[in-house]
Each structure stands twice: as C-alpha cells, then as structure tokens.
Amino acid sequence: MMSDKLSWMAVFASLAVLSALGAVFGYAPVEASMGIVQKIFYFHVSSALAAYTGFFLCCGASIYYLLKGDRRADVVARAGAEVGVLFCTFVLISGPLWARKAWGTWWTGEPRLMLTMVAALIFYAYVVVRSIGGRTEITRRICAALAILGVADIPLVHFAVQKWRGNHPRVLRNGGISDEMEVALTVAMLAVFSLFTTLVLLRIRVGMAEEKVERLHRLATARGNDIEDRRRSPLLENP
C-alpha cells in the first residue's frame, strides 16, 4: 500500500532532519567570522535547490497536462508548486538573516536572492490563482500556463540580474569550506530533499483523493439516473 511506503518515507525524512541538525550544530565547526548564523547556510542552500526542483517539477507536469489533458499531471504540478513555495519562503527568510550578519544589511542586490524572489512571486501568484479559481478546468489550464511562463522566465531573470549586479563585490562564495562543513552540508541536503519528497508525495496523495471524491460523486449522480433509464425506453425510437 502506498500509505505504508509513505509512512516509512516520513519516518526516514524525520530521522534525516534530526541527524542533519546534529551534523550542522554538533559536528560542523562554528565559522570564525559569521559565528552561529553561518549554520543557516546548510539549510538555506538545500532549501533553495528544493524550491527550484519543485518549480521545475511543476513546469514539466504542466506541459504534460496541457498536451495530454491528464488530470494526474495537474495534481503533480500543484504539489510541486505548493511545496516549492514553502521551501522558497524559507529561503527568502533565511537569506536576509544571513545578509544581515554577513554584510550588515537585510537586503542586498545579491543576484541569486533576487532571482529567488522573482520565482517566489510568480509561484505565490500561482497558488493564489489556484485558490481563487477553484477546481475548474479553466483554472487548471491557467495555472499550467503560469507555471510554464514562470519557469521560462527564470533564465532571463538570472541573466539580467547577473549582468546588472554580477560585478558586485559582495557575492556569496562557497569556496573554502572545511571538510566537516561539507559533510554537514551533504547530510542537510539529504534531509531537506527527503522532507521535500515526502511533502510532495503527500500533497499528490491528497490531490488524487480529491480527484477520486469528484469521480465518485459524479458516478453516484449517474447511477441514480441509470435506474430511471430502464423505465423510459419506449420513447427512444431511434437507436
């Protein structure tokens, strides 16, 4: 059963998150200049990757939905977008915290942070349109289109922001991290991605359940009418 597998997945994700916390706070050394705030780095980077994974998953599923009309693809797209937005929000909160400590200001023109903000805005809009539009075919298509437009926009935003701000001297560099930090980063990455996968799968399951409720509801209406069908055959002349 899917639910069993998913439970194990959830257990695994919890353990991974716990060990990641252990690795980040217990194993990796406290960075000299940044102090404890540097710990943000491990989860910040992996959450950013998870967020983009969610957005790209959403875009891929949306293209498939538009081409094939498969409702399951729409459910996957929605899950990718919603979980992606969740991780993206964390990135946008942890980013300024980092910036405050590292550069003494909450917001900088750091290119990757600006790119993430644009992506977040587009997918926040996606989620809002979903909830305003309700469960209709128009909404599904609108959102699929938004996801495609949004993801197509990402390389352009990246390029423009890099060119505009790329020569900025205060770009975050990952070079020069110690081996312990690298181990901690790997564990954090694994933890965030197992959490991400669990959440996406859970959201997909909820979505599939919603689809099933809708189908059963229609079937119930249709069945009720079937009983009447037998009584009215005499008037159906043209077979």
Partner: peptide, 28 residues
C-alpha cells in the same frame, strides 16, 4: 428530449412537440 443530462425521448416526425415533451418528462 433531454432531462438531467439524459436522452429520454427520440421521435421521428413528431406530431406535437408539447405532447412528446409531456410524455417524456412524465416518465422521468
């Protein structure tokens, strides 16, 4: 004649639309 999304009556050369309509809906 359609009723609740179903085809409930289908007649060639109807003599009276209202009679057919009434008969069809009575059954439903």
């Amino acid at each position: 004649v359609l009723s609740q999304g179903r085809l409930v009556a289908d007649r060639s050369a109807p003599e009276s639309l209202s009679a057919l309509y009434a008969a069809a809906l009575q059954r439903v």
